[in-house]
Amino acid sequence: MTKSELIARLAERNPHLYQRDVERIVSTIFDEVADALARGDRVELRGFGAFSVKKRDARVGRNPRTGETVDVDAKAAPYFKAGKQLRERLNGGVDVDDDLDDDED
């Protein structure tokens, strides 16, 4: 499913809305999440999942083609963890999570 397919599906479910409004709704949602992460905020959508920013330590990496070592700087990375309800739906109703630093359950 692409963003435009998502928009088409929502337009179908909401025949009273203009397509361009549905487009704005979808874009607004993802823009807000991206803006929040850019500020370093966390976005928690219970049942669906949570977006956060994780710090990745500097490390020594390797160029897989040449085998040469390269220094990789510390960086911030967007992270998403599926919520309990979505995890259960993906696994036929069973919550398979065994991550101890879970903040949703």
């Binding site: 991206a34 850019a38 920013v53 700087d73 960086k75 967007p78 993906l90």
Partner: peptide, 25 residues
């Protein structure tokens, strides 16, 4: 099990690194 994987776009990765968390690092 089936697990969900999120791969952020290059744009989102860049924005997060230009933000306060990235600058702090």
């Amino acid at each position: 099990r089936r697990v969900l994987v999120f791969r952020p776009s290059q744009l989102l990765k860049a924005r997060v690194n230009e933000g306060p968390v990235g600058r702090q690092l």
